[in-house]
């Protein structure tokens, strides 16, 4: 048994850290593709896609700024007015962590607190491209430190399970969103007409979920869009895939159900999604329509978050 607000803070703490990492990866991938010579790159604006993948396109457009590298980076990384900027995520994660300080190990608390303190220094250091790249690396390190200390040191009890649940629900959301923004590039009919731009784009998708190397290990062939979809949606061995996220989500929800002696709507919903992912083939996904499939998934994942909050009195 634990305080419901503690569970809520732990859940959101790890969501925010994972979100910060995800935005850092999206920015890194966008940067990389925007380096591709214009001849190949054509007119696509990677920075608009980055905003869409981060779920911030509307909010950014409303600021009236042009979606260039400078301002998108500023908005997604440093803008305090953007509640999903990396800076906001770090501050919120730290606020959640501070509220539940006793529920965390010293190492996890210090990982988050140091990140919060270092952020100011890093921000002050300025914004050359080189520094931005260092910054993105640093964000990944922070996320690694937070997850790593939690994984290595936390007691395997409800505190840990809620922490991991937040992490995987956020992760599933991010992967689905990144795929959805580029879904048109992954349609099979596109493969024939795709040129080298597509190749860069495909690689960028994989890179933004750090799966480029994994792809080669799993398939041992050149990038094929349907295989990318397969990897990121259905492959359980791929830690950022939707299937893997749900494998973990059901595991941790089951642990909770076992410890509390009862299960509810959250367990049933998670298991339904998990088994659907396990019983789906890539063909089915494309038959249903990739975009439709992903939209449905995002809505379902969102509903699961609400179901968890309701079932466990999170406020």
């Amino acid at each position: 048994m634990m305080l419901a607000s503690t569970a809520n803070d732990l859940f959101w703490m790890s969501r925010y850290v994972e979100r910060a990492e995800s935005i850092a990866r999206i920015l890194g991938a966008a940067r990389r593709i925007s380096d591709v010579p214009q001849v190949i790159g054509g007119e696509t604006n990677e920075w608009t896609s980055a905003l869409a993948a981060a779920g911030q396109l509307h909010a950014f457009t409303a600021t009236g700024r042009a979606p260039d590298e400078e301002s998108v980076f500023a908005y997604l990384a440093f803008d305090e007015a953007n509640p999903s900027s990396i800076k906001s995520c770090v501050a919120m994660a730290r606020q959640n962590a501070r509220s539940v300080r006793p529920a965390l190990t010293t190492e996890t608390w210090e990982a988050i607190n140091s990140a919060y303190l270092e952020f100011r220094d890093i921000e002050r250091a300025g914004g050359s491209r080189r520094q931005r790249q260092d910054f993105l690396r640093w964000v990944l390190d922070v996320s690694l430190r937070v997850s790593g200390t939690a994984f290595r040191n936390m007691l395997r009890d409800e505190r840990y399970w809620f922490t991991r649940l937040g992490f995987y629900i956020e992760r599933a959301d991010n992967t689905a969103r990144i795929l959805d923004v580029k879904y048109h590039l992954l349609l099979p009919e596109h493969a024939d007409i795709g040129g080298s731009l597509d190749y860069y784009q495909w690689a960028a998708i994989l890179r933004s979920v750090s799966a480029l190397t994994a792809y080669h290990w799993v398939y041992r062939q050149a990038l094929k869009p349907w295989l990318i979809a397969d990897l990121l949606i259905l492959r359980e061995e791929m830690p950022r895939s939707l299937a893997s996220c749900y494998d973990n989500i059901t595991t941790f929800l089951d642990e909770l159900a076992l410890a509390y002696g009862r299960q509810g709507p959250a367990q049933r919903a998670a298991r339904a999604t998990h088994s659907r992912l396990a019983n789906t083939r890539t063909d089915d996904v494309f038959k249903q329509g990739l975009h439709e499939f992903l939209s449905d998934f995002l809505a379902e994942n969102n509903r699961l978050g609400t179901a968890i909050a309701e079932q466990y009195n999170l406020i």
């Binding site: 048994m1 305080l3 009195n313």
Partner: peptide, 25 residues
Amino acid sequence: VELVEGRDLFVRDDILYMRTTQGPK
């Protein structure tokens, strides 16, 4: 022990409870 704020607690029939993941305690 638990660190609580006002919103974590409530009173019913002159008894104080905290809101937990498993209901009132």
